[in-house]
Design a protein around this nucleic acid. Structure first.
Lengths: 210, 210
DNA sequence: CTATTATTTGACCGACCGGTCAACTAATTG
DNA sequence: CAATTAGTTGACCGGTCGGTCAAATAATAG
């Protein structure tokens, strides 16, 4: 009953687009509405506040990231260490595409909001932390598998996964700061491998995938 | 001639304090002035814009970071790899202190502004990039020394230094997101060492400092 | 057709934003 | 002393901020 609408979705997508390429604070409700082609009243019909829209946008980012980056890279018919390589490859491709399209390397949506809002908004901080925990879980499974296959020396997969996520966020931050996607390529594969203690050759092509 | 004033310094320090514990956008010129005990007109007597104050604050942060973190940690009578360990130790101490004092882990001033403003303000982006380049240079010298001493396998010190700075920013980001200084301790020493290819023992106590 | 419900509209709110300015005060110089 | 200069004051500017609301509209259910 009543009319139906895609305004909610459009608002969520606009929030993701605009906040990703700039920042939370620099995107006003006004601009959000214009970008989504929606009136201000409709905004507050669907979301009690700008913060709530942001939470929804983060939720959407979780799905989007899973479909476009994580699932393709962490596809189980690749050996585990190559999944992580493929992940960094995709991050590089994404950064390069964004730079080509917008002139800027926008970094990581999650990391961006984490840094901008963690000290100011506990609700958003928790949401962001949850997304990162999820990601860490995925990495943990992957390295655990690599350890089981003896592609990696025996070690605590949970802490290692945290380290890898940290490294990925740091590399992304540097790429954004220098506005240079090449940095991701340069700091990708090799150093993640070293970070894992996987050193020079170990685990490379233990299945003939390269 | 004319009266003298410490308003400029007070404004710079206030900017550093406030923007560090929250964000650039969330700190208004008004609040900045109140915190510094200065009138708005005085603000614009010393700085043409909020952005210029921010640049000055970043410059101050360079000196502050050098004195309180970098110089103590990278003191040359420690072997090079231990300097990097000492660096992460100091970062942990700092985060823990901030958490105790303010309830929040504020992350890294430079990384925070990098993420918040890199896509929006080229001037600030360049300043931030310069500070990170400086830091990378210091790390590069350090790892180059370690390589020369054979504490580290032969490799490109420039790229390795970038990787270490990235890792440090990433760890700091995670600590801020989870509001947990312990994360820095957990992800510190061990994984930096691995990142460098310094693996388990190599280079540890090659001078009897432990 | 009527009642109900979901959505849309756009004017409006007080607060705050970054920035300007002319008048004023205090210290120094000759 | 007067002149010069550096710093201070606080009112003021147009614009934007996040958020509210009452009335209008469109789709469905009975």
């Amino acid at each position: 009953m009543g009319q139906v609408s895609d305004a909610k979705d459009k608002l969520v997508q606009s929030a993701l687009d605009l906040m990703y390429s700039r920042s939370y604070a620099s995107v006003g409700v006004q601009e959000l509405c214009e970008h989504a082609g929606v009136q201000k009243g409709s905004f507050y019909h669907f979301f009690p506040s700008k913060r709530d829209l942001t939470i929804a946008a983060l939720e959407r980012q979780r799905e989007l990231g899973r479909c476009t980056i994580l699932e393709p890279a962490f596809c189980p018919d690749r050996p585990p260490l190559q999944r992580i390589e493929a992940w960094f490859d995709r991050l590089y491709d994404h950064a390069a595409t964004m730079k080509r399209k917008t002139g800027c390397v926008p970094g990581c949506v999650v990391g961006n909001l984490a840094i901008e809002l963690s000290t100011q908004d506990e609700v958003i901080r928790h949401k962001v932390a949850a997304l990162l925990k999820d990601l860490t879980g995925l990495i943990e499974q992957t390295v655990a598998e690599a350890i089981k296959r003896k592609d990696l020396p025996s070690q605590n997969p949970k802490v290692l996964a945290e380290a890898i996520v940290a490294y990925m966020e740091g590399v992304t931050l540097l790429a954004k700061t220098h506005n240079d996607p090449a940095l991701i390529k340069r700091l990708g594969h090799k150093y993640v491998t070293q970070l894992m203690g996987g050193a020079e050759v170990r685990g490379r092509g233990s299945r003939p995938t390269r």
